[in-house]
Amino acid sequence: MKSDKNMISRLALWMGDDALIIGHRLSEWCGHAPILEEDIALANIALDCLGQANSWLKLAAEYGYPNKTEDDLAFFREAGDFTNLQLLEQPNGDFAKTIVRQFLFDALRILFYEKLFLFADENVAGISGRALKEIKYHFRHSRSWLIRLGDGTPESHMRIIRALEELWEFTNEMFEYDETGARLASLDLIPGTESLKENWYILISSAFREAGIDIPGQDRYFSTGSRNGMHTEYLGHLLAEMQITARSFPGAKW
């Protein structure tokens, strides 16, 4: 029983880290988006992600980190302790890059939450059931922008291609699990890497086809090791900004 809780804690940690880091990145758009509706949209999506991160990290703490809270996990760990995908810590770039990053991740998350919603543990099932509905709104948003920009002007088309070129190397590790992930997949509790990759391709390829954009091939360098704490230099900078208030004023309330 104990090891079950430890496994769920680990799963909750990477679900939470993913949501936290993408949520923080999206929140950087607040006040900077190209139009008011998009400013509101990106802030709303960021809020959903931070809410999901809060639920997951709370669960991770409850099941695997005695005497720690969700805030301890978010604000008092170092870059090497974070298990988020490297894709999500990449800087926002232009609006096209943010949209491509979001779309690649939203498609993955839908497939994850559809599976986790069936989990026997009610906390996992409940958080996932709620999050799945939120992510579907995110997915429709990122998908429609991807098509609009890809199938838009020569400039917007070129920007989507450039963003995809820059981000593609971070997609392979979506289908790479740590030891716990492999165990959970072998028990059919989370999607298996092969079927996950196949279904993810199905979800993304129809949108890229509509956008008139070719999906890059496999003949390149791919990042690896996120789930075991490998990151690009960008995560450290992100954490420095995200964690500074909590670390400078421990226990601060307002």
């Binding site: 959903d48 931070l50 709620r130």
Partner: peptide
């Protein structure tokens, strides 16, 4: 029960 995950 929370409505939206991030509902403030």
């Amino acid at each position: 029960t929370p409505t939206y995950s991030g509902c403030p």
